[in-house]
Design a protein around this nucleic acid. Structure first.
Lengths: 363, 363
DNA sequence: CACGCCTATGACATCGGTGTCATGACATCG
DNA sequence: CGATGTCATGACACCGATGTCATAGGCGTG
């Protein structure tokens, strides 16, 4: 590959002058500039970032660590890779920064992270974004002070700057919209208990009920997520949870699910019980994973998990930190998403519910 | 950041000796080695790949260009990012090569490709894999001779080495398995006509029919894919296509769809017409996109598009070329996938069909 | 015309590693 | 005991770019 010296010799000037032409700094006579540019074109010269980095100590690289790309096929295909949208957001936000994004993948093995960080440091990245596959706590090895670090979709105990989805607000807004449509018996089949998302969303669910003066009924709330990616067990749990809800004296008029995939399965289960959607029962999901929400029939109402926005916010924060600014806050930055309405939720005749509830209240 | 000189000074040896310890070459006394390793640990020294590259001219980098990660949200979410599995395959195959994968993304704009290749060349990548989002022809700018290039899921007129899915074989095997289950009226609602995949799969469909002695009925074959990602138009086309198939004098007993997403939509459409799956009508998809095939109820029979395998083969080919081997063939390398059976295809009472067909043949 | 100033350009050192070769201290062998 | 070989280590140049400083020529001004 041609070097700056080859170009200089071909153009009959010094390497420094070629450098000036490439970088557009210093004064170069128009005729000289043309000679140099011709030589560059003729030789197919491409400057080496490595050599440039050695002098400037500015790599122009930003590292991204994720498991989104090469999660083990089973898990990734089951979950539908929603966290990949975070990576998309990062790409988008990085596009005009002039920096190059170096993406590394854990391949599902978090013990590979230190090695990836090491590789990034060898390449002298200016910052690293770590993306988790779901909202959770992580522990990362310490990185050199010169390397800025931002967490997306996760947080740690060290107070590393992080961007998180506003799970409380999401479920709260979703349930609020269901109440506005006249529902008051609202079932909620959650993801695995103990997960951040489950805890926060359950709080949002209860908060929306409270606000509307609807008493919380524990029988309407149950988990159906499992830790292992055991499809069969998950299916059984889901079937059982739906069965228990439908067997209640006062069954729910709408069921919320922990994610869109559970809701998608529920479509089949509910129909196999002879129920029609949304006339006999309404359904809502979570994530707004469009492949599901928009392709299902009827389209699915869901709370959007703002993955792309998380990625964008994380990138903006990192770039700002690279420029020398301190993180604006020590608290996690929460990103909210809208409720996306499909046809899976029926409008109930509110007046009746309303009147009867008034009747009861006033009796 | 500490340099090799800092380490040398701290350990009281020459930089060259530190280099020897790091790379494990040359003979170094055990005591010296320990001193150096302690100095490295104390200083948190990480060698600079840039400086190393300057001497060795071996970057250890492989570039990957894809649109899989940051396709415009609409399209990506609609298509479900199956081509991402190619990237997964590449990651997996690259894992043990000792090389670092540099992933760049077109963001859906193919006019950005030259700039990305340029960036790769600045980093002196040893090879580039270009991944297309669907099986098609592409035109890429020429790259330096020193940079090896492999195409995955696409091909060009210049005869660049490429890996392609065996679309003919996939549809052939799928239809063959349907015939084996006793079906002979097999509807096929294809993707957009003119696409490589559509042409090849239609040939596979016809070939399987021919082989079984089933006459091809043009009324059973129709396209329902549209070029634009116009969800509404697609839905209407699909609805209409299904309607026409069901209105035939001898309607099909099974319908194949161009991809799993179309099949997923068909579930809703067929059910809204009062048909039950698979008792009244059988359905088959294409891609084996597990989020759909395994989550749908009943599970969907599909031909697997071997994306991961395409990525793996592409990587193996590229690594071999980097080592100086010539591409083994000038023809595209085709990768086949299996038929994955779900519960969406009913076993027909073959004996009757069989006897009646014998009756006809022998009369 | 001499002086200062600006423009255009080049010489040289430098960044952080590694390849080449040299060197000194021992060990081995005839 | 001297010649030769091996081991451990260091001096030095070099990879390809760029920052610093120097320099030569042209031009305006007193």
């Amino acid at each position: 590959m041609a070097t700056i010296y080859d170009v200089a010799r071909t153009a009959g000037v010094s390497p420094k002058t070629v450098s000036r032409v490439i970088n557009g700094d210093g004064a170069v006579k128009a005729s000289t500039k043309q000679k140099v540019q011709k030589a560059i074109a003729d030789l197919g010269y491409v400057p080496s970032t490595a050599a440039r980095l050695m002098r400037s100590n500015k790599s122009g690289l930003v590292g991204l660590i994720t498991g989104a790309i090469s999660l083990s096929p089973d898990r990734s295909e089951a979950s539908g890779l929603p966290d990949l949208f975070i990576v998309q957001g990062i790409q988008k936000a990085m596009e005009h920064s002039g920096k190059t994004l170096l993406i590394a993948d854990t391949g599902g093995h978090s013990d590979r992270v230190p090695k990836l960080i090491r590789t990034f440091e060898e390449h002298r990245v200016e910052g690293i974004i770590y993306v988790a596959d779901y909202h959770r706590r992580v522990e990362l090895p310490t990185v050199s002070d010169a390397t800025k670090l931002v967490l997306a979709n996760c947080y740690d105990d060290a107070g590393t700057p992080c961007i998180l989805p506003h799970d409380f607000q999401g479920q709260y807004a979703l349930v609020r919209s269901l109440i506005a449509k006249g529902h008051s018996r609202i079932g909620y089949i959650t993801l695995t208990p103990g997960h951040e998302a489950t805890t926060l969303r359950t709080a949002g669910y209860r908060s929306a009920l409270d606000e509307a003066g609807i008493a919380f009924d524990p029988a309407l709330l149950m988990p159906a997520g499992v830790d292992a990616s055991d499809g069969a067990a998950e299916e059984q749990l889901l079937w059982d949870a739906i069965d228990r809800l439908l067997s209640l004296d006062r069954p729910p008029t709408v069921i919320c699910f922990g994610n869109d995939r559970m809701a998608m399965r529920a479509y089949g289960i509910l129909r196999s019980r002879g129920l029609s959607l949304p006339d006999d029962i309404s359904v809502a999901g979570y994530d707004n994973y469009k492949l599901i929400t928009q392709t299902l029939y009827p389209t699915l109402t869901s709370a959007e998990l703002p993955y792309a926005a998380i990625g964008i916010r994380a990138t903006e924060l990192l770039l700002s930190m690279i420029e020398g600014n301190a993180p604006p806050t020590k608290d996690p930055i929460l990103v909210s998403g809208p409720v996306v309405h499909g046809n899976s939720v029926k409008d109930l005749p509110t007046p009746i519910t309303h009147l009867s509830s008034i009747g009861r209240t006033t009796k």
